[in-house]
């Protein structure tokens, strides 16, 4: 016998998902969209902007020394991201070292080199090749580069004595005078 007592509308409602199932499906879909949106927003953010407070980090150098916010406080800090396989990095390496030797005696300037996605033997070879004496260390877990949202190497960030980002260079420095021109205005007379 056919079920002639049930109307088509009733049958349609019987076929539909239960209410809790529909709510769950919409919540899951919404949550997924929010996560995708957050990831996309994060990816579309450019590098840290000048005038902002840059991310804090502690660098463990290849010598095992720790350089963190306490060592950076009250100083002009130049943070340079580099890699041994990066040819443009070689272009600025000698100038950065010269600048470091020029500013180091003052005591209020700190240079930090961060090796990005580099192997330790290759990094050490690079440091030796360019006779680099300022603190250098690996970007363990690429956490520092991700915090700074770098897009490649070389990239250089200069933080002023108040701890704010004062200068960003997304390409290699072309001369010692260019490095000095970016640091000198941040130093007290």
């Amino acid at each position: 016998m056919n079920d002639i007592s049930t109307s088509p509308a009733e049958k349609s409602s019987q076929r539909a998902l239960p209410r809790w199932g529909r709510i769950l499906a919409w919540v899951a879909l919404f949550a997924l969209l929010v996560i995708v949106a957050m990831v996309l927003l994060q990816k579309q953010q450019g590098p840290v902007a000048v005038g902002q407070k840059p991310p804090t980090f502690t660098l463990t150098t290849f010598d095992g020394e720790q350089v963190g916010p306490a060592e950076m406080a009250g100083k002009v800090v130049l943070v340079n991201f580099w890699a041994s396989w990066c040819k443009p990095c070689e272009q600025e390496a000698a100038d950065l070292e010269s600048a470091w030797r020029y500013y180091q005696p003052r005591g209020d300037v700190l240079f930090l080199g961060i090796a990005w996605t580099d192997t330790e033997p290759a990094s050490l070879g690079y440091i030796e090749k360019f006779d680099i004496t300022y603190p250098n260390g690996p970007d363990l877990g690429t956490s520092i580069s991700q915090a700074y949202r770098i897009t490649g190497v070389p990239e250089t960030y200069i933080i002023d004595k108040n701890g704010l980002l004062a200068y960003v260079k997304l390409s290699p420095f072309t001369s010692l005078s260019e490095i000095k021109a970016s640091i000198d205005p941040l130093l007290s007379p």
Partner: peptide, 24 residues
């Protein structure tokens, strides 16, 4: 996968960075 060359597995990646990683 090396972060420098996204979406290219390390075994076929032609860059110097990847060659260093393979050597490691």
């Amino acid at each position: 996968y090396c972060p420098v060359c996204e979406n290219i597995p390390l075994d076929v990646c032609p860059t110097t960075a990847c060659a260093q990683w393979r050597e490691l």
